[in-house]
């Protein structure tokens, strides 16, 4: 059975990943077309969490650097997008690219400092980043709108897209659905790029650095440059995610980028399994679909709305602790263990 599956999958990595993306696209279309506008907007939310989490998993899972500052990096992307879309003359894909680029530049700066830090020091420094950056929006309130933030014009679907969509599905293309498409197409592209990167030379090198710094350095790898590169890649993803967030939420405001956002992203990658893109997707799904569920449970159990809304972060925190204590490999780690056990049993019988 497995052998057959294996033969059906193409050899070349790029082809295999491309095939995955096309399959992903089909799934996205099917899911978005068959679900309600409310679910569509949930999927739009999931797309930006997943983009940021995918970037973070490269940094933390592959390169072993923790970042609590990804919420702040998302803020950079979101504000860039808000500013560029303000006049109405910049097309949104350009704004997204610009957001990624600006955040990548921020990533160079942060990464250069971070490259020399590890573990708790890095966590503390990026925590300071997460707590400090929203202050900038308030300080430059003339440009960035202070506490209120900037409202964002979210893009309308262009005619050709709406036509193509109608042609394919004979359905209406609502605003939420369009944004969900934008988010998920971005996500698929990001995942394709990251998957290739992780499987390629840089992926190997990053893993080597994570596993044995000294050996990697003796082997002639330039640790500093490699770490900065990981940070930049990861920051660009956070910038893109922030850009999608701004368009979906129609707002870039300091209250959207608290430390809790950074910690939610960390939860997503840890729960999914550090270093795994699939894990990052699973973790992001958790961030989107868990809160309404536990909030409902909470109101059902007699909590007020405000209290029930706090159940989700409570669960994140508990889950972070429990996963680290019981299954540090996250969901993907567990699955991999089961899979291996299956192979071993299959081999011995």
């Amino acid at each position: 059975m497995r052998a057959v599956l294996r033969r059906l999958v193409p050899r070349s990595l790029l082809l295999r990943n491309l095939l995955g993306v096309v399959a992903g696209l089909v799934v996205v279309v099917l899911v978005l077309e068959t679900t309600s506008p409310f679910r569509n907007s949930q999927f739009a939310t999931m797309s930006y969490y997943a983009i940021a989490a995918a970037g973070l998993t490269v940094l933390t899972g592959l390169n072993g650097q923790i970042s609590l500052g990804h919420g702040a990096l998302m803020a950079v992307g979101a504000y860039t997008t808000a500013l560029l879309l303000e006049g109405g003359s910049v097309p949104f894909p350009l704004a997204m690219l610009a957001a990624a680029a600006v955040t990548a530049v921020a990533g160079v700066v942060v990464g250069a400092a971070a490259a020399r830090l590890h573990g708790p020091y890095l966590a503390g420094a990026t925590l300071a980043l997460a707590v400090g950056v929203p202050g900038l929006a308030i300080y430059f309130d003339g440009l960035l709108g202070g506490e209120q933030g900037l409202s964002v014009r979210s893009p309308r679907p262009p005619d050709w897209f709406a036509d193509a969509h109608y042609f394919l599905t004979a359905g209406e293309l609502g605003g939420a659905k369009y944004l969900a498409y934008v988010g998920w197409i971005t996500l698929l592209v990001v995942v394709l790029l990251l998957a290739n990167l992780m499987a390629g030379r840089y992926g190997r090198v990053w893993r080597a650095v994570r596993d044995d710094e000294v050996a990697a350095e003796l082997a002639g790898m330039r640790l500093g440059g490699l770490r900065i590169l990981a940070f930049v890649v990861s920051a660009a993803c956070a910038g893109l995610a922030g850009s999608v967030l701004a368009m979906v939420v129609r707002l870039a405001a300091p209250s959207g980028f608290t430390i809790v956002l950074s910690l939610s992203l960390l939860t997503a990658v840890v729960v999914g399994g550090l270093g795994s893109l699939t894990g990052a997707l699973l973790g992001s799904a958790l961030l989107v679909f868990l809160p309404p569920a536990v909030t409902n449970l909470g109101t059902g159990a007699g909590l007020t709305g405000v209290q029930a809304a706090q159940l989700a972060p409570l669960v994140y925190g508990v889950v972070l602790v429990v996963v680290m204590l019981l299954a540090p490999g996250g969901v993907m780690g567990l699955l991999r263990r089961l899979w291996r056990r299956g192979i071993n049993q299959g081999g011995s019988t």
């Binding site: 072993g64 966590a123 972070l320 680290m324």
Partner: peptide
């Protein structure tokens, strides 16, 4: 997690951080 990989301990304390903050909001407003 004491004596284990340093990232694991960091993540556990961060989990506690979020959990306590949320719990306080639920219990005390």
């Amino acid at each position: 997690v004491e004596g284990g990989p340093e990232l694991n301990a960091v993540i556990v304390t961060l989990g506690l951080f979020v959990a306590f903050q949320a719990l306080a909001a639920i219990l005390f407003g």
